[in-house]
Design a protein around this nucleic acid. Structure first.
Lengths: 354, 354
DNA sequence: TTGAAAGCGCTAACAT
DNA sequence: ATGTTAGCGCTTTCAA
């Protein structure tokens, strides 16, 4: 038998009221006289009452619907991992009466984001999890959610003005600094390092700009003045000019490394391999299949893992705990900057704790 | 309302028996006629019945006692993290009727381990979580647990013969390889690297021997024949001869790096700092305060995080899920090899997802 | 061997 | 405004 747990029944007895009244006080459902409320609160605070969450869910078997607004995994391998996390979370929380519905948008199409946000809104969800890739398009959407008291959690891209209940992601500035170290480690000047934006809409991606800042600051902070960092914008890797642009970059004097701010390092690795430039270090993001190949081959030197799968499972878990168990939510979940090299890659792939 | 979940009641109706009978079949409690059992099983298999775990715990409110056998955190900062994880898990699982009791032993005293194991055994726990630091002393203990059908989970040190329900830790061989890369990255020969065992009982620590193997194999696999790896045993850092031994090591020709197989890198960093040997790279384990200081100062180049806190929380979670919810347990939880450098350290410290 | 029924702690609908 | 009560799905005891 669980030893000495105080239950609602106990509180009711001690306060001289009924269980119903205690429940009303606990959940601010109103219709309680001041005196009764006062007595109940007093008993509660002096009794370290902890609600039995198990019984709570069993008792109220209502269903909560969470809408998850994420980029279409069919259009970019990076987002398949987010989708996988979503599925995991959906299964895990189903037994608690939480229904998770994904709503996909095209991550290169602002308008698709807008349309999807409308669909989400009209579905009248109990909560929303979203990757707000389009900064300016997203803001009004979240304003509406706020007005309608629909709690929402953001991941991937931080939009402070949106005032989400919770944000999940990494410190992009630190991430850029780390990339700097990974490229520079063991080198001695004069060295030059490029930060490459591959087919990115920087205007709408404050986190990528932050990465760039961190990267540049890393080199500024070195005592050695011989090192330089500069940024360059590249086109869609599938476009014809991509290789030309890249070869131009590769001709830069003293170029020792390239930092790709997204999961697109493989596109650069492809060219590096072709032109046999083994002197150029390459650092990028995320454990997608295309990158792993080049990491194993030693063409990509390191990847920083953003853990997209965990981002979505945690996002759903946060919302589900909030809705079902009325648990508090941290304002932010910053993920560690995981360094993946050829030597520890397999340990990450084999591990199921992430 | 949760839509179409089949309950025990439904199965009972379909099989034409009572709920009690279904329950007996589900849990092999016996006292069921062959015919009844058959009918119930048929209905179950054709109905994708999933037990409601929530209701399960509510219904049977029995208490489970888990004994956690770990090194005394007062004697070594490394083990404070394990203890912290234990406390976290204890609080988390209390509401499910799981009582976690720590039993501490002296990690340098075989006899203390033996004594503690007896105490644990006599407490008649429902399950055991243990860090079996003393290989040979541990084996008979686990044999007894097996005989008494007491489920147990091991972490930190893998003892396959003990046949635990589950093991939690890292792949030590890969870990050694990774250390090799971290020390070698960017160097060109001739280079020599030492693997230092600081006050270790190698006989009883197969995982440390594995690290050494991996480390040496890393250098053997380099095409470059100029590099060499060798091992050295050092005394207790508090003993007078420690510094002498270390200085001897530091005089080795072409020495470029030292790999410490435990959390004791700080002891070597101390001497490195004193003798101003900034040319020696240092790689060790774990985010204990003493190490962090030298990592921030750039004297330790990288730490591999073994995540001791997570090891114990997961160990308890595994056992608790097994006992309370009758969930299956994976045979092994291998943790990823987390690389911590000066640049991503803060991101790990700030993160609460580990 | 089987069925009936009382609870686990909480919620929510209903009476008062 | 307050109390009473019937569940939620499962376990477990007791009687048959």
């Amino acid at each position: 038998m669980i030893t000495t747990n105080v239950r609602i029944k106990d509180i009711a007895r001690l306060a001289g009221v009924s269980e119903g009244t205690v429940d009303r006080v606990l959940h601010n459902r109103g219709k309680v006289s001041k005196e009764a409320e006062e007595r109940v609160l007093k008993v509660i605070s002096s009794s370290n009452y902890k609600p039995n969450l198990i019984a709570r869910t069993l008792g109220s078997n209502r269903v909560y619907r969470i809408a998850a607004m994420v980029p279409d995994p069919a259009l970019d391998p990076y987002w398949t991992q987010s989708a996988a996390g979503l599925n995991l979370a959906r299964e895990e929380w189903a037994q608690y009466g939480v229904q998770v519905t994904p709503y996909y948008f095209n991550h290169h199409d602002k308008n698709s984001f807008l349309q999807t946000s409308l669909t989400v809104y009209h579905s009248k969800p109990d909560a929303v999890l979203a990757a707000p890739l389009f900064y300016y398009t997203a803001i009004p959407f979240f304003k509406v959610l706020k007005e309608n008291n629909i709690p929402f959690v953001l991941f991937n891209t931080l939009i402070p003005q949106a005032e989400p209940l919770n944000f999940i992601g990494q410190n992009s500035f630190q991430s850029g600094q780390l990339a700097g170290e990974l490229l520079f480690y063991g080198h001695r000047g004069p060295c030059s390092y490029a930060i490459a934006h591959v087919y990115e809409d920087l205007e709408n991606s404050p986190h990528l700009v932050e990465k760039e800042k961190g990267f540049k600051v890393f080199f500024q902070q070195l005592k050695d003045q011989n090192n330089e960092a500069f940024s360059v914008n590249l086109s869609d890797p599938d476009a014809s000019q991509f290789e030309t642009q890249l070869n131009e970059l590769l001709a830069s004097p003293n170029l020792k490394g390239i930092f790709v701010t997204t999961s697109k390092a493989f596109a650069i690795a492809r060219v590096l391999e072709k032109s046999d430039r083994r002197d150029i270090r390459l650092v990028g993001y995320d454990l997608i299949e295309e990158n792993l190949h080049y990491l194993r081959a030693g063409i990509i030197n390191a990847l920083i893992n953003q853990n997209p799968k965990r981002q979505t499972t945690l996002g759903i878990a946060n919302l589900a705990n909030y809705l079902v168990f009325k648990k508090e939510m941290p304002g932010m979940n910053l993920f560690p900057l995981e360094i993946i090299t050829r030597q520890n890659l397999e340990s990450y792939l084999a591990s199921d704790i992430h």
